[in-house]
């Protein structure tokens, strides 16, 4: 479903070329729960930006749902983000002036759905994250865990092909983080594809498979277990 083929992202630092991603290749299949692990500065954020179509690769090919992203215009990329990808961020990234309901509704507005359809789907999504009673609250009136659940509702309301979570528990305490992780497991069991980006091995271990990144290069899990973290529980070396 997701294929990165020799993808590089290069930044110019003075006269030096710095590879944020250095010929990285990997594959994620439909319905998988994969975590991308690496210390800060390893290139995992760049990886996430490219997978999330927030940024484009300088070299190599990124294939999402069988389509190469390379030659898309900005408008088409926005459409892909809107329809195929559900983002969940570390700092939630909700719009502070909008209520929970309006925040969840936002991606549907950009899909130009009818008001009725939007309302119905927003209700469903908020029920799924057990926040129906907080629909009218603004982010500031919600706890961190509740805010993250609103963000998850916003991601799942468009029924995306891929959930892309960037340190989703990073700003939460352990207990709340646990609850959020349970939500991801539930989403996974419902057949969704989930990519979790984290530097936390404990969180990463909950995924079916881990992909390690270091210095912009993808290290297979087997390789990574010596260098970066403990051995993955299951499905470590998928390809």
């Amino acid at each position: 479903m997701i294929q990165l083929q020799e993808v590089s992202k290069i930044y110019q630092m003075g006269n030096d070329k710095v590879y944020a991603l250095d010929h990285a290749s990997m594959e994620i299949r439909q319905g998988e729960f994969v975590s991308i692990v690496g210390p800060s500065g390893s290139g995992k954020s760049t990886m996430m930006n490219i997978i999330g179509c927030l940024d484009t690769a300088d070299e190599g090919d990124y294939i999402l749902d069988g389509i190469s992203i390379e030659n898309y215009s900005e408008r088409e990329l926005a459409k892909i983000r809107n329809q195929k990808i559900g983002f969940i961020f570390q700092n939630f990234n909700l719009l502070p002036r909008l209520t929970a309901e309006e925040n969840v509704e936002l991606p549907l507005i950009y899909q130009r759905l009818s008001t009725q359809e939007r309302k119905r789907r927003v209700r469903e999504a908020l029920e799924q994250v057990e926040l129906s009673k907080r629909m009218g609250h603004r982010p500031a009136e919600l706890s961190g865990g509740q805010q993250q659940r609103v963000a998850i509702a916003r991601a799942l309301v468009t029924k995306p092909s891929l959930f892309l979570a960037d340190e989703p528990t990073g700003n939460l305490d352990t207990k709340t983080g646990r609850e959020i992780m349970e939500l991801f497991h539930a989403l996974h069991e419902a057949g969704n594809t989930i990519v979790l980006i984290t530097h936390d091995n404990q969180i990463a271990e909950e995924a079916q498979r881990r992909i390690f990144i270091l210095d912009g290069q993808v290290r297979e899990a087997a390789e990574g277990e010596h260098k970066v973290g403990p051995k993955p529980k299951k499905g470590g070396t998928g390809w």
């Binding site: 900005e74 926005a78 983000r81 983002f87 990234n93 719009l95 936002l106 991606p107 950009y110 916003r154």
Partner: peptide, 15 residues
């Protein structure tokens, strides 16, 4: 930041 969030969840240039 708001613009970034809106763009991430699929707002096009036009919107």
């Amino acid at each position: 930041k708001e613009i970034g969030i809106r763009k991430a969840i699929g707002a096009g240039k036009g919107s």
